[in-house]
Computed example of a mutant assay.
Amino acid sequence: MRISKLAASKHKKGRILVQLDSGELLRIGEREVVAFSLYVGKELTAEEKTALENAARESGLKDRALSLLTTRPMSRKELTDRLMERADATDEEAEAVADELERLGLLNDRTYAETLVRHYSAKGYGPYRLREELRRRGVPREYWDQVLGDLDDPAETIDALLRQRLRGRITDRKELKRASDYLARKGYHWTDISAALRRYDASLEEDEI
């Protein structure tokens, strides 16, 4: 089969349309034109055509992955899931792209876990909520204790959240319960919450918290 026409796509930057004399149209990237030394009139064997199509698909998946990563950081699992859902990649193709991006240092679950914990810690999330975010976003469990172990003592954050919630008032049991439930939803341990309530009001008895 012979290439009868090479033309840049009018609709997608970087895409090249390869017209074959058989009437078939191939959609490839600019890098494949160079890698396969393509030109009008070149004869392609069936094996070369298959190799060209495979290379173009691999390049397209890498470009899609890079586009996803520039939108926001993500874990390896998030990336491979999106490639399979949105780019119709097979599991093997998605994993191969992820391997390549990890090799290039563009995908790193440990670094992502650190970024995630910093972001949600700044929002006042405690250890339970942070673990849930790490789980939800597909960060491997092997990194959880590592990044959570670097967290500062939560006392200062809990105290600030409690002052903001109660606005400096000495409150009744019902409002204290609402405040402690709020902190629990934020992901803090009960021992840290009860200690913060006693710091807030030293007159509170254990059975009042």
Rank of each mutant, 00 (worst) to 15 (best):
M1Q: 10
R2C: 06
I3G: 10
S4F: 07
A7S: 14
A8D: 14
S9Y: 08
R15V: 15
L20F: 08
D21G: 06
L25G: 09
L25K: 13
L25N: 10
R27I: 08
I28D: 02
I28M: 04
R31I: 13
V33Q: 12
V33R: 12
V33T: 12
L38Y: 09
E43N: 14
E43C: 11
L44T: 07
A46M: 11
E53M: 11
E53F: 04
R57E: 02
R57A: 02
G60Q: 01
K62T: 04
L66S: 06
S67D: 03
L69A: 04
P73R: 09
M74Y: 00
S75T: 11
E78F: 06
L79R: 01
L79T: 01
T80L: 04
R82N: 03
R82F: 03
E85T: 11
E85V: 04
R86A: 10
A87K: 05
A87F: 07
A89N: 00
A89L: 01
D91C: 07
A94P: 00
E95C: 02
E95Q: 15
A98V: 02
D99H: 05
L101P: 04
E102K: 07
R103S: 11
D109Y: 00
D109F: 03
T111E: 14
T111W: 05
L116A: 08
L116K: 04
R118W: 03
R118S: 08
Y120C: 05
A122H: 09
A122Q: 13
G124W: 01
Y125L: 14
Y125W: 11
P127S: 13
R129Y: 09
R129N: 12
L130S: 06
E132H: 09
E133A: 12
V139A: 07
R141E: 15
Y143S: 05
W144K: 04
W144S: 04
Q146W: 11
L148D: 02
L148K: 02
G149M: 03
G149H: 02
D150N: 11
D153N: 15
A155M: 03
I158R: 02
D159E: 14
A160Q: 12
T171H: 06
D172K: 10
R173M: 06
K174P: 00
E175F: 05
E175P: 02
K177R: 13
R178Q: 13
R178W: 07
A179W: 06
A179G: 09
S180M: 14
D181C: 06
D181T: 10
D181E: 15
R185L: 12
R185I: 03
K186M: 14
Y188W: 01
Y188V: 00
W190H: 12
T191N: 14
I193M: 00
A196W: 02
A196Q: 01
L197V: 02
A202N: 07
S203A: 14
L204D: 00
I209S: 05
I209R: 07
